[in-house]
Amino acid sequence: MNAPTIQIGETTIHALELPKLLNRYQIMPQVWRGVVIDQAIADIPCTESECALAIQEFERRYHIASVEAKEAWLQNHGMSLEEMEELAIRNWKIYQFKKENFSHKVDSYFFKVKANYDRAVYSLIRLKDSGLAFEIYFRLQGSEQSFAELAREFSEGLEAYTDGVIGPVTLAQTHPHLARILTASKPGQLWAPNQIEGYFVIVRLEQFLPARLDDIMQRKLLDELFDMWVNEQVRSTYKSN
């Protein structure tokens, strides 16, 4: 019996070639991920009303508000209506799995990663010349010129175009040395030049915005905990195969 084939353009692919191709195109990890998730949610029930709500939420999320919009979405994604509804219900089941298995871990995980989500607004001037950096620092200390004026005139980074102001950005997005400075700062505190990545950096904290465990953050952390779990399951599957 001949193995089934798939025709893509002028290329014929035999089914037995698929694993090799999936590995070549680095798709196999996504396949394993999908299998792991499907196994995890297989026993999660979805009543008729829950399935209907799942589909409504899916359509709201993707702005499918009319028959025409639905037809366009299906065509763009190469799906049938049944496949779209199955995807919506799958997404709902995944969220239920996340809540059931990881909600109790969110609080402790938040305090573990909170520093990564704390945000800051700060003013910054960076220069290659240490002598000039200290001269500018002393001008700021003596209130001879404003931070904005000096940043526009002397800073050698993109902050020269924003009056030296950066943010709000998460501390995880900043250089670790700079993040430590900002964490130890009070609003308005000016720091003498620090050498970071080949520049002499003058920084002043303008505003510190601590992360809060609100609904958006809870959802984000649930996603992170779930992703870590799935990745571990995929790694374990690879090792055993």
Rank of each mutant, 00 (worst) to 15 (best):
K93Q: 13
R60P: 00
A88F: 10
V165K: 13
L74F: 12
P193V: 04
Y109M: 06
L178V: 03
Q145F: 11
N194L: 09
A120V: 15
F58L: 07
S155L: 00
S66V: 04
I136H: 02
R119L: 00
R152M: 15
Y161S: 14
D118F: 03
V121C: 10
D163Y: 05
Y137K: 12
F154N: 05
L182Q: 00
R139L: 14
K105Y: 01
Q75T: 11
L74T: 08
K105P: 00
V106N: 03
Y161R: 15
V67G: 09
A120N: 01
H175Y: 06
S66H: 04
K98L: 06
E86H: 12
T183S: 10
F138A: 13
V106C: 08
E57F: 09
K128F: 10
K114Y: 00
K186I: 10
L81V: 08
Y109W: 09
Y117S: 05
I166L: 14
F102V: 07
V121S: 07
Q189H: 12
G167Q: 02
A148K: 14
H175T: 06
G167D: 02
S66K: 07
K186A: 10
P176C: 07
L132W: 02
E149C: 09
R139I: 04
N116C: 08
G164E: 05
H104A: 08
L127Y: 02
R90D: 07
L190R: 03
S66N: 02
F58N: 06
V67T: 13
G142P: 03
L81N: 07
K105E: 08
W73Y: 15
K112C: 00
S143N: 15
H63I: 11
F134L: 13
A120I: 08
A192M: 09
Q145M: 08
E82Y: 11
R139A: 11
M79G: 03
I125M: 04
K105W: 01
F58H: 14
Q195C: 11
A88D: 06
L171H: 01
K112R: 09
E57W: 09
N76W: 12
Q141M: 14
R61S: 12
V113R: 04
G188K: 10
E149K: 15
K112Y: 04
S130P: 05
Q195V: 06
S66A: 05
K99W: 00
A151T: 07
R139H: 12
A88K: 06
V165Y: 08
R90T: 15
A88E: 02
A65P: 00
L178T: 01
K105G: 00
G142M: 01
A192C: 08
T183A: 13
T170L: 08
Q145N: 13
H104K: 09
V165D: 05
F134N: 11
A160T: 07
S143F: 10
E135K: 14
H63E: 12
G164C: 07
E68A: 14
A172W: 09
R180M: 07
I136A: 05
D129W: 10
R61I: 04
R180F: 01
I94S: 01
Q141N: 12
H104S: 13
G188S: 08
K93F: 03
I166Y: 10
K105F: 05
Y62W: 14
S66Q: 07
G142H: 13
T183R: 09
K98C: 07
A115G: 06
I125F: 03
H63A: 15
V67F: 02
W92P: 03
W92L: 06
V113G: 03
F97W: 15
V121M: 08
V121A: 04
H177Q: 14
E159L: 03
D163G: 12
R180D: 08
F134I: 09
S146T: 15
